[in-house]
Design a binder for these strands. Structure first.
Lengths: 137, 137
DNA sequence: TATTGTTATACTCTATAACTATA
DNA sequence: TATAGTTATAGAGTATAACAATA
């Protein structure tokens, strides 16, 4: 065992996989969800910004955005300052979708949290900022 | 904010995404990796068992396994007790691939760990079993 | 000329339906 | 008949290359 964090890393990967599998029938895929969450949290984005954020090529992101526009969750609007750029924003339906999805996932996660002891829950709350730091590093 | 664990859940998802993106050029995909790791950790598996473990349909898993057999990482062998079943196992190359990949990922993770304080590292080590419990719940 | 976005095209991974061999 | 695996086929999602519009 060359590294004491192997177990931690594996547990993280596994838990995250379980979370990702928590999606409703007929739901949007992982890439689409990421875009909707991003626009919800960071406001209107250009295509390039979204592609970079998800580390995906612009044509790929363009297709993803196209699907979400067709579904009525996003709007594409040409920028007034720079006509090359587009501004991608949420519709009301998109905003509602994000809220609903977040609610459902939080509920799933909270149910699992409920099986822990008070001490374990306390530990989780304290480790949250550390995980955030790791993710952003 | 209806749930105090939203932040934790998001950090987990984000960190895991970063980890998954850590793959070398010409590397195998996520689904293929999951299969190799599974067989490495749990020993020879039937196709159905692998499909169920990854929550994927048998035809889909069959294709994934087929690619890995062609790549020389897995072998398919008919069971002697029940001729309908196949036993899927790692080749030496497959075993080596798993070890190498795990080593690389651990290194990536360890590098990020290095930016933490001793106290934060201690917290992480203690939370590992809790995360495992959550993932397995 | 460089940048932003898009279209054309192909490849991978997934799924459902239908088939084969075995129990 | 039921089960384990496979084959046939199609639908998402991704990529690279080439193009269009604008700066």
């Amino acid at each position: 065992m060359p590294n004491p964090y192997t177990d931690l890393r594996l547990s993280l990967a596994r838990l995250s996989r379980r979370m990702r599998q928590q999606r409703a029938e007929g739901d949007v895929g992982e890439g689409q969800r990421s875009v909707l969450f991003r626009v919800h949290d960071a406001g209107p984005q250009t295509l390039g910004a979204l592609a970079e954020h998800d580390r995906v090529t612009p044509p790929s992101m363009n297709r993803t955005v196209g699907v979400l526009v067709e579904r009525g969750y996003l709007t594409r609007e040409q920028s007034t300052e720079d006509a090359r750029r587009v501004s991608i924003d949420l519709t009301d339906a998109g905003r509602q979708w994000v809220r609903e999805t977040r609610r459902r996932r939080d509920a799933w996660f909270a149910a699992r949290i409920g099986s822990l002891t008070a001490e374990e829950r306390d530990l989780l709350e304290r480790v949250a900022p550390v995980l955030r730091k790791l993710a952003d590093a």
